[in-house]
Design a binder for these strands. Structure first.
Lengths: 146, 146
DNA sequence: GAATCATGTATCTGTTAATGATACATAACT
DNA sequence: AGTTATGTATCATTAACAGATACATGATTC
């Protein structure tokens, strides 16, 4: 499976957006996360629906935060993205007839449920302002290597 | 990505193997997990390397346990499979230049490390005999639905 | 109001890792 | 010698995300 980088990407651009007081275009933001504008808009649309960002068309348009970073938790972003799958492991059948397989599923499901609860709890405790460096960071084309 | 069902599959067949005292062929085991013999052999090879099962060729050959179920933990199987990836989420770049992205990565990595520790701890506490039903279950063609 | 700019969104292709399938060499048993 | 079963290489399939392109729609500027 491909790793899902949407959460990581959204957190990244949200913090960048907080560091300027004007809208940033999909073009600029996409370049900073190393992808293309359509991918960014597709994902940002979920955050807009959830009310964390606003978008504007035309001249002077682009994306801006709809609320301060300290009011947004990682959990809020995760949920805005419709809780993407966390785990790469799974079971072959959701409702097997075999008793053994059911026991196996139950054991794995139990652990995954606990791990998910841990994710949720920790994501809920971190607000995005905690991810902002001391010194503001410019939005550069390609914030990344590789 | 496709969900990784190797751990689930291996736990399933190991418990089945404990319920008979003769070797089971890849053919029979593969049918019970709803796949084909080559896939099963491919995955079982890891367990053989780790010493949990033995395989034999020719007449009367097949797979048998190399130690009792109560001596094998979920963790042991997970590690025998070379610790397959647990999480479906990830970051775009492992070593970004952008400070913000580094902070984002660190926050996610921190939570994933804790979740992984939880997996390891719980997997280490469960032995395979705990997954065996009270009544022995026959190895049927297709233990599963769907 | 025409040109430009930026989003909104549909559609198609690319990527990745697991899974499925086939083939055949090798070894063990009868 | 023939049959049975594993060992393993190779290629196709699948699922989900990522990337790319195209173009309609709406906002701003002149």
């Amino acid at each position: 499976m491909n790793k899902d980088t949407r959460l990581s990407d959204m957190l990244h651009v949200l913090v960048h957006m907080a560091q300027v007081d004007h809208p940033l275009t999909s073009e600029v933001l996409a370049r900073s996360m190393g992808t293309n504008p359509a991918v960014l808009r597709r994902t940002m649309a979920d955050l807009r629906e959830a009310g964390y960002v606003q978008s504007g068309k035309g001249h002077g348009g682009g994306w801006r935060l709809a609320c301060p970073l300290n009011r947004i938790t990682l959990l809020a972003v995760y949920e805005a993205l419709n809780r993407p799958r966390l785990f790469a492991i799974g079971y072959r059948s959701d409702h097997p007839e075999c008793l053994i397989e059911r026991n196996v599923n139950a054991a794995l499901a139990d652990t995954m449920a606990q791990a998910e609860a841990l994710f949720i709890a920790r994501f809920g405790q971190v607000t995005l302002d905690q991810l902002a460096p001391e010194q503001p960071v410019p939005v550069t084309p390609h914030c990344r290597t590789r």
